[in-house]
Every structure is written in C-alpha cells, then in structure tokens.
Computed example of a mutant assay.
Amino acid sequence: MELFTPVGLMLDEHLWFEIGSGDFLHCFFSTISYRLEPNGWGSKYPFMMKKLYHEDMEKKYNLQLLEEVKAIQNSWSISPDDVVWDIEDLSKQPPWGEINDPSIMSLANYFSTESGPDLLICFMLR
C-alpha cells in the first residue's frame, strides 16, 4: 500500500476541503491546461493556472479567479475518458484505471473533494 500526504484547499482559517493526493490535484490542473488552453499553461486562465497553482493568490484577484472558474465550468462537459493525469507525461494514467461509476458522466463531476463538493465549486467559495 502506497502512502500519500493528502493535499487540500484552505479557503480561510475555518474552511478546508481535502482533495486527495497531490497527483490528483495536478491532474485537475493538467486537464484544464491540456484540454482548454490551446496556447499552453496559463494562456487562457492565468489567475487559476499561474497565480493560484504556483503562488498563494491574493484575495484581491478573487473576481478574476471566479470569472475563470465559471468559464472552465462551462467547458467541463468533456468526457472523463479525456482526463489528463500528467501534462508532463501524457502516457500516465490514473492509478484506478477507467472510471466505472455511471454517475461520473463528464469532468464536471470527476474532480470531487474527499469531503464531497466538486473541486471547481470549492474555488468559487474562495
């Protein structure tokens, strides 16, 4: 059994959503970049993909982030088979293999946090 350190999203000192492994979080961002940003990482969603991914984003950018999250959500009707586990190595696949859960019909509900809400919804709460 492989152990991993869970990662999460802390929205404020009282609101924490456990996401799972760091690989799963990287998969989320890899999929956004590969499937929705034809000109490369952060070219279409700079606040989400550059500021938030690489830095501790200041709250003054929340409106820009929210706009990007909504745009991503509107484009999230992509099949779960099109998930990109690692943008640096496109041959990598999720460790659980194919999704056999009929409730996961698109990427809109593929990326759920350990505590329940979809990851994109968590970013909207920021």
Rank of each mutant, 00 (worst) to 15 (best):
L65W: 05
Y61F: 09
L90S: 05
A108F: 06
V84G: 07
S79T: 12
C27H: 06
G22H: 01
W16A: 11
S79D: 14
Y53M: 12
K51L: 06
N100A: 07
L65T: 10
S21Y: 13
L3K: 08
Y34A: 06
E37A: 07
N62L: 10
S77V: 01
D12N: 15
S77N: 09
N39C: 01
E55N: 11
G42I: 15
F29Q: 08
V83W: 10
K70E: 08
F17Y: 15
S79E: 08
W76Q: 03
N74M: 14
G40T: 14
S79L: 12
V84D: 06
L120F: 07
L107Q: 01
L125K: 11
S43K: 14
I72R: 03
I87R: 09
Q73Y: 13
S115R: 05
G97L: 14
M57G: 06
T113Y: 00
A71S: 11
T113G: 02
S106I: 02
P102G: 14
F4G: 03
Y61N: 13
L119R: 01
V83L: 12
L52Q: 01
M48H: 09
I104R: 02
Q93P: 06
M49L: 08
F4C: 11
Y34S: 03
V7E: 01
L52A: 09
L120E: 00
S79Q: 04
G97R: 07
T31Y: 06
E98C: 11
H14G: 11
H26E: 13
K60H: 10
N109V: 03
Y53E: 11
C122Y: 02
Q73G: 10
E58P: 00
M49N: 14
I104W: 02
D86S: 11
C122D: 01
F47C: 07
M49G: 01
H54N: 14
E18T: 13
I99Y: 03
Y53C: 08
D12E: 10
I72C: 07
D81W: 01
I87S: 04
I32Y: 01
D56G: 07
Y34C: 04
Y45D: 12
V84A: 10
P94Y: 13
D101K: 05
G42H: 02
D82L: 10
P94D: 10
S75Y: 02
I19G: 07
E2M: 12
E2F: 07
I121N: 14
T113V: 05
T31R: 10
L90M: 04
S103P: 01
N62Q: 11
K44Y: 00
S77D: 11
G20C: 09
W85F: 12
D82K: 15
E18I: 12
D56M: 08
T31F: 09
D86Q: 04
S77Y: 09
S103D: 00
M124D: 01
M1D: 08
N109K: 05
I87F: 02
L65Y: 13
E114V: 15
I78C: 03
L15T: 13
L11S: 12
L36V: 04
S103I: 09
L63P: 00
I32A: 00
S77P: 00
E2I: 02
W41Q: 11
F24G: 08
S30Q: 04
